[in-house]
């Protein structure tokens, strides 16, 4: 099972800088990836001047655009899938 945890900052500052657009991407990917994608919400990630910010598997990503986030999540998912495949294949 591949698990990716994504946590969008819902703070007002990130919201003003387009956090909602990232939320839309996450919703779309949630439909595609189902249980593989765990969605969390943060009230502030303390990097307000650089927003919109997202936590991805414990790593902080600042100033994200919807395209960047989508690519990051999908790339992460592909890598994890590959890893899983390798371990189960042995």
């Amino acid at each position: 099972m591949t698990k990716i945890t994504v946590g969008l900052c819902a703070g007002t500052s990130c919201h003003l800088m387009g956090g909602m657009d990232l939320g839309t991407v996450i919703e779309e990917l949630k439909v595609k990836l189902g249980d593989d994608l765990q969605v969390q919400k943060h009230t502030c990630l303390n990097q307000c001047r650089k927003g919109p910010n997202v936590m991805l598997n414990g790593m902080l990503f600042v100033g994200m655009t919807p395209e960047q986030l989508k690519n990051e999540i999908l790339a992460l998912h592909d890598r994890e899938e590959e890893n899983n495949h390798d371990t189960t294949g042995q």
Partner: peptide, 17 residues
């Protein structure tokens, strides 16, 4: 609404909390 949100951020007010 845009100006209000900017004002919230300027005053360090975070509605998510």
């Amino acid at each position: 609404f845009e100006e209000l949100a900017a004002l919230f951020v300027a005053a360090d007010i975070n509605l998510a909390t």
